[in-house]
Design a protein around this nucleic acid. Structure first.
Lengths: 337, 337
DNA sequence: GGTTAGCACTTAGACATGACGAGTGCTAAC
DNA sequence: GTTAGCACTCGTCATGTCTAAGTGCTAACC
């Protein structure tokens, strides 16, 4: 019983099952693939594969389907990432160009990726732990209300209305703005909490109170920027692959809506900086996703933010991985170095 | 055959069916409700109701279920909006207080409403057609790049990076800012396109080109603010009421994701400024929602923005309507007059 | 040892059958 | 206008049978 052929059989089973959604038997296998041996031999191989926990039979007289472990081996060792078609590449290029608003880019990205893969696409906002303060703006809205705007060098903008607790003139606000800006420009957002007290201390005592309020506001802005968010698209694709989620797609929808779950999952995946990572079925740390797989990779500076796809374990991994990788590359390119 | 009793029968059918999800027969009806007549009489009434197209029988020997038209009559004439429980009211109050960031308020609102009703909740961003320019800020990011920030009096902030096509100094940007701000503060966003050319014309010729670029940018910002958006939550609830969408929840998810569809639907509903409007089944202008109902109402200034709930036609209308109305009221109160 | 052919065995799924019950519509009486 | 009674219609469920698919095993083969 040759080891290489056994792997070949596993590959064939995964491909056929992904294609047909039906358990695949030994006879069908020798017909569709030219393996050069008889179905009886394949049966022996399959029995061995089953012993190793790579495939399983839903019932006695059915064909086999891959287990999570089988998919894992398939993904790790067997599948070659298929290159995208010319048309697909052009679609990516066309769709993602011509916009430099971050929200817009991410929005387009998920739509595109979900259409490309026919699954749910997810993209995480680039997290700004390494981002720096590019600009700070204070705008006097009312005598006691100041709008604080914090702009990071990634293009991300956060704003909030702050009640400063004392009446300020336009000039006072402009003065505070200059002081904050001078001290903080270029500061990494992650260091803002440490940097702020010094700025407050440097302000004239008469404005100390307002400065304090503003500092608190900026801190909150920076942390709400650190607090990660994501965009997704293609949830309707889940319904189509209804059959692939025997129980219900409910738990999956819940996981998607509880962004925290997805974000944790994404960040736990993909230590590998260049490759595409796959999390299969019960490998997922969340029960609701026990029948789902996530294909993700990093993008942007340091590949720290993630973009990915979620679908049933019975998924066309090679194609999906190719799409995710391609989209991540274009995304990185657009967002710049 | 008394007309009032017929309506009473319809009401009973709707309530029982919503409760049990099963066609309700004449006998069960007289047992559960004390109607004071025999089942045979009810049968006559039911036959009449069926003739009028208000109820229908899935098959010969089954009970009746309400049609869209039946639900419509029920909602219009028969159902009394149930008041919310004390606990529910407190939940609304607790959850919606303590935040003045618009995004955050809306986010909490949809979550709350979806939990309250066990359905999908949707809230539209207050549209700003009546909103006015409160502040304009230009920030020089690079010699040719200016970040334009447009702040409306509703608290909504939009920003974009604009390539001005010529190098500008900090002073030049400040000058432009002052000029734009002086001319435009208080201008309704909807009138911005008409107001901008005059501002550009008033600028020094040397900066005319940059002013033009900035004007185009502001126009785009204003229109992207006009372009309406929405937030939703509770899509997982759709999966639970799987049974209620015989075909698939796919089309419904698509409609929800295609925000344009939902936004059009919401804005077409609810002319009635104070009441809660309901759109039932095929009344919806979108085929994918043929088996869904939407309960919505306006909130905020002029009740122009909408908040609502989407669920199966077989929905507990009185309770849902009460929840939507209550949430809209609290929302209006929080967002101020 | 690995491969093959053949065969008994298992099982899901499709199909037919019949009993049962729920519910209706109709008629005749009140 | 209301009611009782009854024949009739269907969906559902339980039961039984048959078929096709696919396996595991054994014995022969190279």
């Amino acid at each position: 019983m040759s080891e290489p052929r056994k792997l070949e059989v596993l590959r064939a089973i995964v491909e056929d099952y992904v294609h047909s959604r039906e358990p695949v038997g030994s006879k069908a296998l020798v017909e569709r693939h030219h393996l050069g041996v008889s179905s009886a031999t394949i049966r022996n191989d399959m029995a061995a594969l089953e012993d190793e926990g790579l495939i399983t039979a839903p019932h006695t007289s059915a064909g086999r389907i891959p287990t999570d472990k089988g998919y894992r081996l398939f993904v790790d060792q067997i599948s070659a990432v298929k290159p995208l078609s010319q048309a697909e590449r052009r679609a990516i290029q066309t769709l993602l160009e011509g916009s430099d608003d971050l929200d817009d880019v991410l929005e387009r990205t998920v739509r595109l990726l979900s259409q490309l893969t026919n699954q749910v696409a997810v993209v995480q906002y680039p997290h700004l732990s390494r981002a720096m303060v590019r600009h700070i703006e204070f705008v006097l809205l009312a005598p006691r209300q100041v709008l604080a705007v914090l702009i990071a060098d990634t293009g991300k903008v956060e704003q909030r209305v702050i009640d400063v607790g004392q009446e300020l003139s336009d000039e006072a606000v402009a003065g505070l703005r200059t002081r904050f800006l001078k001290s903080l420009a270029g500061t990494p957002l992650s260091l803002l909490p440490q940097a702020l007290p010094a700025v407050v201390a440097s302000c004239e005592p008469a404005r100390r109170h307002a400065a304090q309020a503003l500092a608190r506001g900026l801190d909150a802005l920076a942390s709400s920027t650190r607090e990660e968010r994501m965009v997704m698209a293609g949830t309707a694709n889940l319904a189509r692959s209804n059959v692939d989620f025997p129980l219900s797609i409910g738990p999956v929808l819940e996981a998607l809506e509880e962004q925290v779950v997805m974000l944790r999952l994404l960040s736990e995946m993909a230590q590998d900086p260049r490759g595409v990572t796959v999390s299969i079925g019960r490998e997922n740390p969340y029960d609701g996703l026990a029948e789902a797989s996530v294909v993700a990779t990093g993008y942007g500076p340091g590949s720290s933010a993630k973009v990915g796809v979620l679908g049933p374990t019975r998924m066309d991994y090679p194609t999906t991985m190719a799409a995710v990788r391609a989209v991540a590359r274009y995304l990185s390119r657009i967002l710049g170095p």
